[in-house]
Computed example of a mutant assay.
Amino acid sequence: MGAAFATVLMIACTAPSLSANALSFPPTDFAILNPDTGVAIGRSRYRVDSTSDGATLDGENGYFDGQTDVETAHLELDAAGQQPRQVEFDHTFYNADKSILMRAHVDLKSGAATCIDNSSGQVSTQSATLSFPADTWAGASIVIPIQDILRAGVKGASRRLHVFNCAPSPKIFAINVNVDPGSAVWTSYGAEALRVEVRPDFGWLNVIIAPFVPKLHAWFDPNDGWAFVGDEAARYYKGPKIMLVKTRDSVRAAREAK
Rank of each mutant, 00 (worst) to 15 (best):
S158G: 12
Y237R: 11
T114F: 03
D69E: 01
A128S: 12
H74W: 09
N61V: 00
A55E: 01
S169Q: 08
L161G: 03
V143I: 15
A134W: 13
A218F: 06
A20F: 11
Q83T: 12
W226F: 14
P84C: 02
G139Q: 09
D36H: 13
F5G: 02
D90V: 11
A184C: 10
Q126C: 04
A3S: 11
A22E: 07
A254Y: 04
A104L: 13
C13F: 13
S52Q: 10
A128W: 04
V185T: 04
D49N: 13
L244I: 03
W204C: 00
F164Y: 15
H74I: 02
S52T: 06
F164R: 09
D201I: 07
R255H: 07
S158K: 14
H105D: 03
V48W: 13
I144T: 08
V213F: 14
R235I: 01
Q83C: 04
V48N: 05
S120Y: 11
K155N: 09
A253R: 11
R255M: 01
A218W: 01
A140K: 10
P170Y: 08
H91D: 02
G190A: 04
A31S: 13
N178E: 03
V163K: 12
C115N: 01
S50Q: 15
F202E: 01
L194N: 01
D53N: 12
H162E: 03
A113Y: 02
F173R: 04
H91V: 02
A20R: 15
N61M: 04
G66C: 03
D107K: 13
D201Q: 06
I146V: 15
A174E: 03
P133V: 05
Q147A: 00
T28W: 11
G81N: 06
S19G: 15
V245S: 06
W219N: 04
M1D: 02
L77S: 04
L205I: 01
W219P: 00
K241F: 15
R248N: 04
T125P: 00
N95K: 12
K246W: 06
A3V: 07
P16I: 15
N34W: 12
N206I: 05
M10V: 05
Q83E: 12
Y236E: 02
E256H: 11
N178Q: 05
P181H: 14
V213H: 08
A31G: 05
T72V: 09
L130K: 08
L108D: 03
P168Q: 07
G230L: 03
F132I: 03
S188V: 05
F164D: 00
A253K: 11
A184S: 15
G239C: 05
Y189G: 01
T92W: 04
I208N: 02
L9M: 04
S17C: 11
V48S: 11
D148A: 05
A6M: 06
A31F: 07
K238I: 00
T125A: 14
V213S: 02
